[in-house]
Simulated assay, not measured.
Amino acid sequence: MIDNNLNIIYSSDDNYCIYMGVSILSVLENNKNFNSINIYIVDNNISDGNKLELKKLVDSYQRNIIFIGFEKYKKYLNLNMEWQISISSYARLFVANMLPSNVNKVLYFDCDTLIVDSLDELWNQDIKDFYVAGVCDTVPSNTKQAIGLNSTDFYINAGMILINLKKWREDNLEKRLLDFIDDYNGNVIHHDQGVINGVIKNKKILPLKYNLMTSYLMMSREDIIKFYKVEDSFYSQEQIDKAIENPVYIHYTPGFTTRPWVKGCKHPYVDLYWKYLKLTPWKDFKPIKNNEKFHVKMVNWIYLNLPFDVADFLCKSLMKVTGRG
C-alpha cells in the first residue's frame, strides 16, 4: 500500500538552524505531491526567533511542524569523549520515544542536506523486517571492527535513515543502543552513528541516490577504496554514476570542499545550495569564514588540484613527517 503521509525528523541547535531550514525548504519544494508532511524538530536550544521563522516557512506550504525538546533525553547519555559534532546528533537514538505511538516510521535527515527530488520511492521502501534502511558509508575495516562488526558487514551513514519505529518500540531498541554506549564507556567511534551500526547488524541497504555524500562526488570508486581503505564490497562505479546523474538527497559532508555555507566552498553543488537558501527566511545570510586549520586547508587544496595518486602520496608523506599519520 502506498503511504502518502510523510514524516521527517531533524535535530538541531541554534548554530545549525539556518542550514536545517534550507534542507526543510528543499523537502517542501520537491514533495508537494504528499497528502501531508509532518516535520518534527528536536530542539536543542533553538532561539525563539528561529523557531518562529521555521514555523512560518512550513506554514507557508500548509504543512505541519512539531518541536520536541531535547533536554530531558540528554540525561540518559553517558558520554565520555571529545566533541567533533553537536550532541544534537544523538537525538537519533531516542526517536521511537520522541514521536507519537501511532507514528510507525520516520525519515531522519541531517541538517547539511538538500532534497532535490521526490521522496516517494524512499518513503515507501518495505522495511517491515528491518530497524533501519540507509546508504553505505566509506569507512575502513578497523572502524567497523572497533564497534564489533566484521570487515565485510554493511556500515550505513546515519545522516539519512528510514526508521521502522514500530519495530524499534517492540524490541526496545533504545535500551540496547544506550547499553552499547555504556559497554564502550561512553566512547564509541563515530558517535551515535557508530552506536547505530554497532547495534543494528541487519540493515536494509538503499541506492546511493538517497544519500549522495561528498566523497562519491569527488573521487572515483577506485580512489575511494584507496583513500578510505574500504573493502571492495560496496557500490559499483555504475551505481555511483547513476546516483550522481539523478540524486534525490545531497549530503554536504566534508570531503576536501568545506561546507556550502563557508567561503571558498568547492562542492559541485554549492550553487544549488545557495539557490535554495535564497528561498528561505534567511536569504540575506552571507558565507562564513573558513576556520579550518592550516593543514586541513592544505590537504584539501592538494586533493582538489593534483591527480589523486600524486595528492595521496604527497599528503600521506606530509602526515608522516608531521606526526599526523
Score class of each variant (00 low, 15 high):
M219V: 00
N104D: 12
I181D: 07
F313H: 08
L177P: 06
I250C: 09
D271Q: 12
K286G: 07
E29T: 07
D192F: 05
C265W: 02
F34R: 03
P100L: 02
G134E: 04
S23Y: 00
D183L: 13
S317C: 11
N150D: 10
K286F: 07
N31S: 11
D117V: 01
V27H: 07
L272C: 07
N164I: 02
S47P: 13
K167A: 05
R63V: 03
W282Q: 03
K297L: 15
N164F: 05
S220P: 00
L314H: 08
D284H: 13
V106W: 12
N172R: 13
L122G: 07
D309E: 13
I66K: 11
Y76P: 00
C315A: 07
S36A: 10
K278W: 12
G198D: 04
N97F: 10
Y216N: 10
G49K: 12
V42A: 01
D153V: 01
F67M: 03
H191D: 13
N185R: 02
Y155S: 04
V310Y: 10
I66F: 11
T257S: 13
Y90A: 03
D182E: 15
I156L: 09
D241V: 00
K144A: 05
Y252G: 09
H267S: 09
L107H: 08
S36M: 02
P140S: 14
L208E: 10
I8Q: 04
K55D: 10
S89F: 08
V262H: 08
S101R: 05
S215E: 14
L107D: 06
L279D: 09
I288M: 04
W282Y: 14
N7E: 13
I127Y: 00
Y184F: 15
F154P: 00
T280D: 02
D3L: 05
L178F: 02
G159Y: 03
D183I: 04
L277C: 12
Y16A: 09
D284A: 11
N187Y: 05
K128W: 00
S36F: 00
I46A: 05
I225M: 09
T280G: 06
Y108E: 06
A158R: 00
K275T: 10
D309H: 06
N142D: 14
V103C: 12
E245S: 12
L162M: 07
A158T: 15
N202D: 15
G159P: 02
C265L: 09
G255P: 02
K144Q: 08
S151D: 12
K226Y: 05
K105I: 02
S47W: 05
Y273H: 08
K289I: 12
A158G: 14
K128V: 12
F180D: 01
D309C: 03
E292R: 14
L206E: 08
R259F: 14
E238R: 13
L165H: 09
Y184C: 03
Q239F: 05
Y19H: 14
A146P: 01
V199K: 01
S215D: 13
N305Y: 06
K55R: 15
E170K: 14
C315V: 15
I2P: 13
I250K: 04
V139Y: 01
S88H: 05
G264P: 04
F67S: 07
L206P: 13
D13N: 14
W274F: 12
N211F: 00
I244S: 10
T152E: 06
